[in-house]
Computed example of a mutant assay.
Amino acid sequence: MTLSDTAVQATGVVAKAFTILEGWDHRGETLGVSELSRRTGLPKSTSHRLLGILEAAGVVERLAGTYRLGNRIRGISGVLSAGIPTYLREVSLPFLQDLYELTHETIHLGVLDGVDIHCVEKIYGHRRAPVCSRVGGLLPAHSTALGKVLLAYSPMATQRAILTSELAMFTPATIVQPLRLAAELTTVRRHGLAYDRGETHPEVKCVAAPLVNAKGRAIAAISISGPAGRFQPEAVVERLRRAARAASVVLASKRASVA
């Protein structure tokens, strides 16, 4: 086989892999080989082989005979679809570091990506909260403080999308009833703060505040989280508010300078 033939063959495999990935309607969907084959028009044997390759690469995950998009592809899609300004991390990082020095708790910076939160930056606290989060990874919007504060400042169409979707229950405290979540978002918007009191992990509490632009739209959010048995979110609220306001001012001026 010539080098040219190898390149053509590789191109065909890549094209079919993308065809497989286009079989999902949304990130949370789980599909079996037969359904993927039906949706894509690829033979079941081809679909099964490609899914094995994609699973090995971390692009898809296998769950009891079905498949869903994996963290690797979800992280990439978060960067591309969330519309993250290139300067967001650069501008926000000093304020995240200040909050860490003041609290010694875990600090997150995140943006809304569909029904998820894309984690832009994370600074680990002295006592790490048991939440599986990483830079570039995704967190659920409806149960996290970051997610609730960003949803509260989002257009009604965005809120409707999550309120009409199936909400996963992570702990007994997770709000999965649409009316309750809608009321929670109204309260969050009124106070400019969101809380996660054991809703994502039973041993973690968290509070978040938005970074808003001149039009009052949240473009990102900062959160402080810690172990539920020790961390009191109310004790850090004013520090968080000040950091979020200051970061918002700098982001607005940075946006104006690059516009």
Rank of each mutant, 00 (worst) to 15 (best):
L3C: 02
A7V: 08
A17M: 15
T19Y: 03
E22I: 00
E22G: 06
D25K: 12
R27V: 02
R27T: 01
G28R: 10
L31I: 01
L31Q: 09
S34P: 03
L36S: 02
L36F: 04
L42A: 07
H48P: 00
H48K: 13
L50T: 01
L51P: 01
V60A: 13
S77Q: 15
S81Y: 12
A82N: 02
P85N: 04
T86I: 03
T86R: 14
V91G: 07
P94G: 03
P94Y: 07
F95G: 04
H104M: 06
H108P: 03
G110T: 01
V111W: 14
D113L: 04
G114E: 14
I117M: 14
E121W: 06
G125L: 09
P130A: 06
V131N: 06
C132R: 15
R134F: 14
V135S: 12
T144V: 02
A145G: 06
L150T: 00
A152D: 11
S154V: 01
A157F: 10
T164H: 13
S165F: 12
E166D: 08
E166T: 06
V176F: 11
P178M: 07
A182R: 14
A183D: 15
R189P: 06
R189C: 03
G192N: 03
A194P: 10
G198D: 08
P210L: 03
P210H: 07
N213M: 05
A214L: 12
K215F: 15
A218Q: 06
A220V: 05
A220M: 11
I222T: 03
S223T: 02
A228Q: 09
G229T: 06
Q232R: 10
A235P: 00
V237H: 08
V237P: 00
R239G: 15
R241D: 01
R241F: 04
A247I: 02
A252D: 12
R255S: 12
A259F: 11
